[in-house]
């Protein structure tokens, strides 16, 4: 959970990291030592949400975007 939040926070603030999370998720899974369940959330709902983010996310929107992604993670891990 905390790891996924760390990952999405980075991806929101940094477009370069976002692309790695979108297109080389296996690197992120390994380097953040994610569980299978977390990896599924990364490549599933998180990837879908990252694909829709603007380039870049404006600093004023960081808080709201981070909160929105947190909900996505919460929801995915609960189901």
């Amino acid at each position: 959970m905390d790891k996924l939040i760390d990952i999405v926070n980075r991806a929101i603030e940094d477009y370069g990291f976002r692309q790695i999370a979108q297109w080389s998720p296996e690197d992120v899974v390994e380097m953040w030592d994610l569980t299978n369940e977390e990896a599924g959330v990364l490549t599933g709902p998180i990837k879908m949400a990252l694909d829709m983010l603007p380039i870049p996310v404006e600093p004023d929107d960081y808080i709201s975007e981070k909160a929105r992604f947190r909900q996505i993670i919460d929801k995915a891990l609960r189901t």
Partner: peptide, 11 residues
């Protein structure tokens, strides 16, 4: 590029 726009962190 998208990369430069993205990494500038603000339009």
């Amino acid at each position: 590029t998208h990369q430069a726009r993205g990494s500038s962190q603000s339009v």
